[in-house]
Write a protein that binds this DNA or RNA. Structure first.
Lengths: 263, 263
DNA sequence: TGAATAGTGTCTGTAAGACAGTATTTG
DNA sequence: CAAATACTGTCTTACAGACACTATTCA
């Protein structure tokens, strides 16, 4: 079961490459990444927003091989000069397309295999972002010829690579997390009413929830603050407007939202 | 806000590389990954087990540069010949060290930046695995000179790269998920008693839970099946033994376990 | 019999679901 | 006034927590 490792190997090194006589400094000086057969690594971003009461994801039309002229998720390679980290790559890609600089951004998954890219072994790190649709200015940017919001409930165009599956996974993750987090807050503009917030939850969940229970849940989590005197006016009773407290980037409820099953 | 993209770009392509006159076939034929400056990409695996009533993680002593002679998480590069996917790389690394072939394995996070590896820009895909400690045979394998279980509650040796942080993140993820999933099942051998299962939950959570509530929760989730007649004997009332139903790889409870706050 | 652990019964507390009620605006 | 939406009150239900109780073995 548990071998006594200490005596088995202590005092000598197994053979390895590079040889033991090379110091770490010498090793690093002679190290050349291009000597190794390593996979492509890219970053893709699933950008969600709410537009016309629909949940939408951003897709771009590729202007380059492979999959030229196909729709795809925005993404690309880390620029080792521009980016200090893969998060920065994700933020940069998101900003290039939307001009939004402070989204909710979360790492989703990393997919790497020898099937997904015709160029060979390829790995992509997938992020998902939530942004408010106000103040977004879409830009196709470099490497793409078009950009648009895809209503995730309608039929999708054929997406490049395995991007249809990546998008499906992102939708699943978002739906799951909405059951026990406050993520939909990030799909709304800075100020909003409780009815608007509830509406966002319902759109993402795909079902109605009870108003009274919903408000109690939000109130008791202390996620929001009233904006004194600011009301949403209409042909009915005015609604109090709220904003998210800064500290509530992601709040976890201790129970799932169950809600009504009918839409 | 939302630009009418259709008319803006339809009918022509933006300039791009490679030029439009090259077909995809020609492009792929001339494509050479070594022409590009791409980051190192590795896979690391945090392997948890339960041993002597402690939660432990596997660490290996590096026999190669960089960080030679330092303890580190098991991991390494995908072998583009051996591995069809990064999951396979993770399974391979896990099997090399433990001879366990069917662990619980989950992707944790991917960390990529220009600080974490002295060789330069580097990305690692981190997995975490849960295995039962019975039938494990530790092997240091290639590139490492030693291997051992690290009790995560004791003080750690200095770990190579950012592995201390990766391990900390894995522990956090495991602890969080134990609040609302059945993950501890995978730390036990095939058959076990309910008290043993509760004990595993308590070790991972770091606190006691109520026996009656715990059993109700497990019973109502229908995760287990009795092994008829098989009992754990001792100087006390014998305990019924159970095994996990095959379909319950990962069960999500709809509420967190709250439990007692005293250990 | 006592020690030890297995296993159960039942009361309480908390938060969600259901749903009907009241409140406040415009037209 | 009616229509529409905002907001609240209250009863019920579900399930976790607390904790005491019973059960079954060995020494």
């Amino acid at each position: 079961m548990f071998l006594p490792q200490k005596w088995q190997y202590s005092g000598f090194q197994l053979t390895g490459h590079p040889p033991m006589t090379v110091s770490e400094t010498e090793y690093l000086a002679s190290y050349n990444i291009h000597d190794f057969d390593i996979p492509l690594t890219s970053v893709d971003v699933v950008i969600f927003t709410l537009h016309e009461n629909k949940l939408k994801a951003l897709i771009v039309k590729r202007a380059e091989h492979p999959f030229m002229h196909h729709w795809a998720l925005p993404g690309g390679f880390s620029d080792l000069q521009l980016d200090d980290s893969i998060e920065q790559t994700a933020y940069r890609k998101l900003f290039e397309k939307t001009q939004v600089s402070s989204p909710y951004l979360e790492q989703l998954e990393t997919v790497g295999n020898n099937k997904r890219d015709p160029r060979g072994w390829s790995t992509t790190i997938v992020y998902f972002a939530l942004i408010a649709s106000d103040n977004v200015t879409l830009q196709s940017g470099s490497g793409t010829s078009d950009v648009k919001w895809l209503d995730i409930e309608t039929s999708w165009p054929q997406l490049a690579f395995d991007h249809a599956e990546l998008l499906k996974n992102a939708i699943t993750r978002l739906r799951n997390k909405v059951e026990y987090t406050n993520l939909p807050l990030h799909l709304l503009p800075q100020s909003f009413t409780l009815s608007e917030l509830q509406n966002v939850f319902e759109i993402v969940l795909g079902r109605k929830v009870d108003k009274s229970a919903f408000r109690r849940r939000i109130r008791e989590a202390a996620l929001l603050e009233e904006i004194p005197g600011k009301m949403r006016l209409g042909n009915n009773r005015p609604a109090q407007m709220y904003q998210a407290k800064a500290e509530n980037y992601c709040h976890y409820f201790s129970r799932n939202i169950i809600g009504k099953t009918t839409k």
